[in-house]
């Protein structure tokens, strides 16, 4: 294993992570809800009466963040190497799978692990594991 020290951003990542944790903390303590993005999106795709407005408010907050950010600072780099067909396959897979798996990096990885939920510990191990394998296959077996 070779560590990419030039790309390594320990303090920014730790601080950003703490902010994500703070968001999850405020949400459970004020609203009594889990900040799980795939679950919040799922409830918009399959809307139930009286259970939509808070989801839209949360998602709107996420989407406008870059606009608010730009009032103070230029945006950090966002580099997307995948081409359009790959993005469509990845998007479909993420959409279907996170609904079956009942969560993603936020619901399982942040909130679930913080709750020490056995389901979330297993889910996080599973998606990290298959993520590692997928990138290994793409970069080091197929050599794309």
């Amino acid at each position: 294993m070779t560590i990419d020290w030039q790309a390594f951003t320990p303090w920014a990542s730790l601080a950003g992570g703490a902010l994500i944790g703070l968001a999850a903390a405020i949400f459970i303590l004020l609203n009594g809800r889990i900040a799980g993005i795939s679950g919040i999106l799922g409830g918009v795709v399959n809307p139930q009466k009286g259970d939509i407005a808070w989801r839209v408010a949360f998602l709107a907050g996420m989407v406008v963040t870059p606009f608010l950010w730009l009032l103070f600072h230029s945006l950090p780099a966002i580099r997307i190497d995948a081409d359009f067909p790959l993005l469509i396959v990845a998007g479909l897979l993420v959409g279907i799978s996170t609904r079956y798996g009942a969560g993603c990096t936020s619901g399982h990885g942040v909130c679930g692990i913080s709750r020490l939920s056995p389901r979330s510990l297993l889910a996080t191990g599973a998606f990290m594991g298959s993520g590692f394998v997928t990138v290994f296959v793409i970069r080091h077996v197929l050599g794309v």
Binding site: I80, A82, L86, L87, V89, A90, G91, L92, L93, V94, I96, S97, T98, Y100, G101, C104, T105, A126, F127, M128, G129, S130, G131, F132, V133, T134, V135, I138
Partner: peptide, 9 residues
Amino acid sequence: GFGVGWGLA
């Protein structure tokens, strides 16, 4: 499956 999609893009 989610991990595979995550790793693809």
